[in-house]
């Protein structure tokens, strides 16, 4: 399949992050599989784009390949990733390292394992300043304490000497976010930043992220499977399924009028739509194994609209309105339902 010829949803002009035709392949014992296929999107400064999909749909793999942190078994085989205009996939390892922090940084999901358990947190927070700004130990530590204050860690000077296991889950996530925004990155990738936290803490963390975004004018790529988070926090959404983008567009439009049956299925399965006495609506079945993605539409096996055509011909992502696109042969019909 050729990379999509379609412009990504947000105007590519002046985008902080542009991903085009990204393909990631995994070497497995039973052969090479495509974990991410022809994924394109772009985000401007100050905007938030949500990558939405269930576990294993390739959203985290997309994030890791953008950040250049793929495991050795995975490889970007096609496409380009531009951070503020620079094609990061063409950079040397040293060039990438230079960009990691000030250009692009990433907040991981599980803050307990993402922080080094045997280093005081202050030292970990100081590291970006040591690496990129060449600050002395003491100067960097002051910067780290400033950051801790900014993300709301009480008694930062004292706590800088504590170790990760001595913080609560929410505080650890704050530390991780502080570390990621240390050098005012143009692009911040947040990979399920709140899944490990309870609901009240989730809201605080999302608020902190939004405040930091406004303050530092960052583009955020928010990776999540939480529809409510997408609805509240994102400007645009990219819905992924089995490594492919199935629908993109501004969140309020996509959520109001989904143009792909998968998006619609996801939205319908929100418990608020449930009717008493009836089973909770759900998308039947489960996603295909990456080694057995069908030749036609990737969603055909679970799709209520599937017809013969879907088994033979993979639908391309086509424009379905201003800055919206969907990859379904029947997206017109879906709109009329």
């Amino acid at each position: 399949m050729k990379p999509s010829t379609l412009p990504a949803p947000a105007a590519a002009e002046g985008a902080a992050l542009e991903v085009e035709g990204l393909r990631v392949e995994l070497r497995t014992p039973s052969g090479t599989v495509r974990a991410v296929d022809d994924v394109s999107f772009s985000v401007r400064k100050g905007r938030t784009l949500a990558l939405l999909g269930e576990s294993g749909c390739g959203k985290s793999m997309t994030a890791l390949s953008i950040a250049g942190l793929l495991d050795p078994v995975a490889e970007v085989t096609e496409g380009s990733v531009r951070v503020s205009g620079t094609d990061v996939l063409r950079l040397s390892p040293a060039g990438r390292r230079k960009l990691a922090g000030p250009g692009l940084s990433i907040v991981f999901q599980d803050a307990l394992t993402a922080l080094n358990p045997v280093q005081p947190v202050g030292r970990q927070l100081a590291e970006p300043f040591r690496i990129h700004r060449g600050l002395s130990r003491r100067e960097a530590k002051e910067k780290a304490i400033e950051l801790m204050t900014r993300v709301g860690i009480p008694e930062p000077r004292l706590r800088a000497r504590s170790y990760p296991h001595q913080f609560s889950g929410g505080m650890r996530q704050r530390l991780l976010i502080a570390m990621a925004v240390a050098l005012d990155p143009d692009v911040l990738i947040a990979d399920e930043p709140t899944t490990a936290l309870d609901v009240t803490v989730q809201a605080q963390i999302m608020r902190l992220l939004r405040d930091l975004q406004t303050e530092r004018d960052m583009a955020i790529v928010l990776i999540t499977h939480d529809l409510a988070v997408v609805a509240q926090r994102a400007d645009d959404v990219v819905v992924m399924y089995a490594g492919n983008v199935v629908e993109t567009g501004p969140v309020h439009e996509v959520f109001a009028h989904p143009r792909h049956p998968y998006t619609k299925g996801l939205l319908d399965s929100v418990p608020e739509h449930a009717v008493r006495g009836r089973p909770l609506p759900a998308v039947p079945g489960s996603p295909p194994e990456l080694s057995a993605v069908p030749s036609g539409c990737v969603f055909q096996a679970r799709c209520p609209l599937a017809q013969e055509r879907c088994a033979q011909e993979r639908p391309h992502l086509v424009s379905v309105g201003a800055s919206r696109s969907a990859a379904c042969h029947f997206s017109e019909e879906l709109d009329r339902v």
Binding site: G68, L69, R97, K98, T113, A114, E127, P128
Partner: peptide, 27 residues
């Protein structure tokens, strides 16, 4: 070296020496 904190260290721009001796070795 496959622990998440090593990915985080790389995402901060740490080179091989810092990753191995600064982060992974002590663990």
């Amino acid at each position: 070296l496959s622990a998440p904190y090593v990915k985080v260290a790389r995402s901060k721009g740490a080179g091989a020496g810092r990753v191995v001796f600064g982060h992974a070795l002590r663990n």
